[in-house]
Design a protein around this nucleic acid. Structure first.
Lengths: 166, 166
DNA sequence: CGTCATTTAGTTGTAGGCAATTGAATTGTG
DNA sequence: CACAATTCAATTGCCTACAACTAAATGACG
């Protein structure tokens, strides 16, 4: 049982989100180096991962896997297309939808990418089980935060227009 | 002891960095909502935290606390200045340096910000000790990654120009 | 004193991320 | 069928992040 003075709650080094941010950006640094020979940025690499795993997908599905919307994906996919790794084709069945397809070159890159996860895993200094445990913890955190964001948004909306409360 | 087929290493849901990214962005969502009445973005809030904790600081020091460089801080600080929370003044002793000072309004905002960490902590669904443990784990991860980035960069540099090896 | 390397902010260019809007296609409903 | 609501991708605008570069000021050293 550890009590903390209220004032200290504002200390930067107590903010979990700061540690999280720092770790995320540190990963960015490692990926930047490791992905350089593939010519990919980290988010582009994530898109390729999804395509390698699931095959061709509409932008919508891609976004669901990655939790990204079209505002982020559209320009990113254009860059992948310009790099020759991907084609974007309007679906014939549903003209609203755009299918993202791997090119030969994009599919071929998978082989070269196989070494990436191992290099990254090594860089973390964690073993497989530690990584798994941390992942589980983070996913749990994300779930709680997503739920809370909805809650908070509802509270805020109620505060702005005190319409019909429960 | 769990062996994983090499091919599976590319699976998105095995990438620790993805969980990390997702959590980081989920935090972003909560902070966006919680910080709305303060009119701050999350990185701006971090800057304010540092200033509240350490008082006026040159841009350089601010960047060291936050691991951000002038390319990120300069425009961000301009926005804080435009919002009236901060002043930027060329140091008299060293004209290269720019002191970032809290305005009355900026200092006063601290009171209103005191509630933020509690709301965020609640949103995580974790208790204080769980947060502390996760923070420690993440900081450890960041340290390992920072070290590895340097290693990898050295390897890459050596590969590009095979100059004098050890 | 003068020159040169270093330090410090700022700027530019590229790339994410996200909210809000737009426009086209599809679906549901009368 | 007609028309409204919905879905989907793209676009716009704003805010990070970071590499590479510029410009000004400082410090060290011959």
């Amino acid at each position: 049982m550890t009590t903390t003075p209220t004032a200290d709650w504002l200390r930067l080094d107590q903010q979990i989100c700061f540690s999280l941010n720092a770790a995320s950006r540190a990963f960015g640094g490692v990926y930047r180096v490791v992905l350089k020979d593939l010519g990919l940025t980290y988010p582009q690499y994530l898109v390729m991962l999804v395509l390698w795993e699931h095959g061709d997908l509409p932008v919508k599905k891609l976004g669901e896997h990655l939790r990204l919307d079209s505002g982020t994906l559209s320009p990113l996919l254009k860059r992948l297309e310009a790099a020759g790794l991907v084609r974007r084709e309007r679906s014939a069945r549903d003209e609203r939808s755009v299918e993202v397809r791997l090119t030969e070159e994009g599919a071929a890159m998978r082989e070269r990418a196989l070494q990436v996860p191992r290099r990254i895993a090594t860089a973390t200094g964690f073993d497989v089980d530690e990584i798994r445990a941390l992942r589980a913890r983070l996913d749990q955190l994300t779930e709680a935060l997503d739920a809370a964001a909805v809650e908070e948004a509802a509270v805020n909306a109620a505060a702005e227009s005190p319409g019909r409360g429960a």
